[in-house]
Design a protein around this nucleic acid. Structure first.
Length: 196
DNA sequence: TAGGCCATCTGGTCCT
DNA sequence: AGGACCAGATGGCCTA
């Protein structure tokens, strides 16, 4: 077998094209409680995810919210802003909601890293567009079905896949690989290039 | 510009 | 009670 043709999650500049940790300022995001707290009083305040990571650590350790979260664009507003932050801290619901949001973001990051790992295990061409989440799941399901059939039949993988390409796939498990279409046809070809 | 994809926030529910 | 999980809503970015 030749080497696997896995999607590389980097663009041509070598930068990750996936979600950037520092790209998510909270200001401007839909949020039902922020408008009366940070967004109202601190329109320029930004929270970046590295900060959130640090903050979530504090939250996990039971620490109170910390004004170091706020990245101020204007230093001389800090005293006033600190007072505003006290307003935020005085509302336990907001604090709990914030902590829940941090946990949720961490949970989604964990899910996304699992998706990235899965993307790296399904056959794609290097030039292919990055698989979406749902396509990653569909292709992984189909790929597993194909591999299962190859094992079950004891066929030579290459000739088996070539037969699929030529005659259309007739799986033993009514596998989704059988749904074919351009999407799976393309990836059947990718599987072939792996086997080759 | 519409549609697809995604990150984020949110409130509800379930679990420990 | 607090955390995990989930689904709906929203808005931003990208592409055809």
């Amino acid at each position: 077998m030749s080497e696997y043709l896995f999607w590389v999650d980097k663009d041509s500049t070598g930068q990750q094209d996936d979600f950037q940790l520092g790209d998510a300022p909270l200001a401007g995001k839909h949020c039902s409680w922020l408008p009366i707290t940070w967004q109202t009083f601190l329109p320029d305040a930004e929270i970046t995810l590295p900060d959130l990571g640090e903050q979530s650590q504090q939250l996990e350790e039971g620490a109170e919210l910390d004004s170091s979260l706020l990245v101020q664009s204007d230093d001389n507003t800090l005293a006033h802003d600190h007072q505003d932050f006290a307003f935020v801290a005085a509302h336990p619901h907001s604090t709990q909601r914030y902590a829940a949001n941090v946990r949720e973001r961490k949970r989604m990051l964990s899910i996304n890293s699992a998706f990235d790992a899965l993307r790296g295990r399904v056959p794609t061409f290097p030039y292919e567009k990055r698989l979406s989440k749902v396509d990653t799941l569909r292709l992984a399901t189909a790929y597993i079905a194909l591999l299962s059939d190859i094992l079950a039949t004891g066929s030579d993988p290459k000739s088996y896949v070539q037969k699929c390409l030529k005659n259309g796939y007739k799986g033993h498990q009514d596998a989704p690989w059988n749904t074919s279409g351009a999407f799976l046809q393309l990836h059947t070809t990718a599987v072939l290039s792996i086997i080759d």
